[in-house]
């Protein structure tokens, strides 16, 4: 077992792809760093917090990007975002599958406007790939999780592979608590945070494929056939979810409503037991 959670972005790439197959585009020695950080007294990383390049997975060529959660929470700035957009556009040119190893708190506030626009460019580029039938797979297993605009971008992709330790959301719990009050969201209640944003709840809703926190498990879960996008079917599904669960007080009520026995034990189960417990009971 090699933990995805503990690994750096570059270790994840090395652990996922065939050994020695990774070639980086605009590598660290090119020193394309953020020009916006120094004036705010923030050190700038050589890769602006994301590595992009190409490699092979069991011989199949693909493009790959990995965000480094330890650098500014994986947040998207101008250069960081442009590297991901360029990679996605290259994938359209080459019709090559894309692996996005995401770990991001969203837009980097130090360059907030550039980051927000960059996220929308990433979204447009992903949508173009969906339209062309070129698969984009998100792998989410880092400590930061995936939030903000990158959380929206994630839900545009063909597939999301996620560990139970990872989180996916739009507004982070702390932001909701600060804005709306602790009654709305108690961000210090870790069990609650994971019931809302964690990999298990996302798997129950069919948003994510759940894997253990192991790089090999992430690799084994990758499927490269494109998922056809049927917006009418998705609309019906999300409408039904909203009607049935939109007012639910807690994920526990939703899980019970789905007929899952003793839902309170779900957070304690390992991945295999969890998947058995929810078999045939997805929302």
């Amino acid at each position: 077992m090699t933990s995805w959670l503990e690994a750096t972005a570059r270790e994840r790439i090395a652990g996922l792809l065939d050994p020695g197959s990774f070639t980086e585009f605009v590598p660290p020695e090119a020193r394309i760093t953020s020009p916006h950080l120094a004036q705010l007294n923030q050190p700038a990383a050589f890769d602006d917090g994301v590595a992009v390049g190409r490699g092979t997975l069991e011989g199949a060529p693909m493009l790959i990007a990995a965000q480094e959660g330890a650098f500014m929470g994986g947040a998207v700035g101008e250069v960081h975002g442009a590297k991901i957009t360029g990679l996605l556009e290259r994938a359209l040119d080459e019709r090559a599958p894309v692996l996005l190893l995401l770990e991001s708190g969203g837009v980097r506030l130090h360059e907030a406007n550039a980051g927000l626009i960059a996220v929308s460019e990433i979204m447009r580029a992903i949508l173009a790939l969906r339209g062309a039938g070129v698969p984009v797979i998100v792998l989410n297993g880092g400590r930061v999780g995936v939030f903000g605009g990158m959380g929206i971008a994630t839900c545009l992709c063909d597939r999301l592979i996620m560990s139970e330790d990872a989180r996916l959301g739009l507004s982070g719990p702390e932001v909701i608590e600060t804005t709306m009050g602790v009654e709305e969201f108690d961000a210090a209640d870790r069990a609650l945070v994971w019931r809302v944003t964690g990999g298990k709840n996302r798997a129950i809703f069919g948003e994510a494929v759940l894997v253990p926190d192991d790089i090999a498990a992430f690799r084994a879960a990758i499927r490269l056939d494109p998922v056809p996008l049927d917006v009418e079917a998705e609309h019906a599904l999300l409408g039904a979810r909203l009607d049935r669960f939109g007012a639910a007080e807690d994920a526990l009520d939703i899980w019970a409503d789905l007929g899952i026995e003793t839902p309170a034990r779900l957070p304690l189960l390992d991945t295999d037991d969890f998947l058995s417990a929810i078999e045939g009971k997805l929302a």
């Binding site: 750096t8 972005a9 570059r10 660290p28 990383a45 050589f46 890769d47 480094e68 330890a70 650098f71």
Partner: peptide, 14 residues
């Protein structure tokens, strides 16, 4: 080849 080691996280260096 050039090598990059470590990450620029708080209390850390690359």
């Amino acid at each position: 080849r050039p090598t990059l080691t470590g990450v620029l996280g708080s209390g850390n260096l690359e």
